[in-house]
Amino acid sequence: MTALVRMISGLVLWSVAFAVLYALQGLGCARGWTEPAVFGLTQTKAVLLAVWAGLIASQVVLLLWLMRRRDTQMERIGIAIGWIGLGATVITGLPILAISTCF
């Protein structure tokens, strides 16, 4: 069972990342955290950027951990899924850079 969980861990982490980003964005907009905070960014966008960066870093750490073992096919699939998790976290978070937060 542990091997199976390890295999899909990259996408499990992406699921968490996606849910966290969406929830933070919704919460920030609903609570009106739209005042400029740092570097001209609104409070919500600043938090989203920080959290997104943290999530990408977590995906990188997970990937490095997964890459330490590649003896079995499940471990190799796990590494591929780790790459997918990392790529998906980057791509689905890109709107944070490009789009206004609450409109």
């Binding site: 899909i8 969406y22 964005q25 899924i81 689905t92 789009i99 206004s100």
Partner: peptide, 28 residues
């Protein structure tokens, strides 16, 4: 297959693109 199984849970709001949800969320 595993990628589809997970990523497909991140699509549901694309049925709600016209409900007034903020654009950044639509972007996700």
């Amino acid at each position: 297959v595993m990628a589809l199984a997970f990523l497909s849970f991140g699509l549901w709001v694309h049925h709600m693109f016209t409900t007034g949800i903020p654009h950044m969320a639509l972007g996700f």
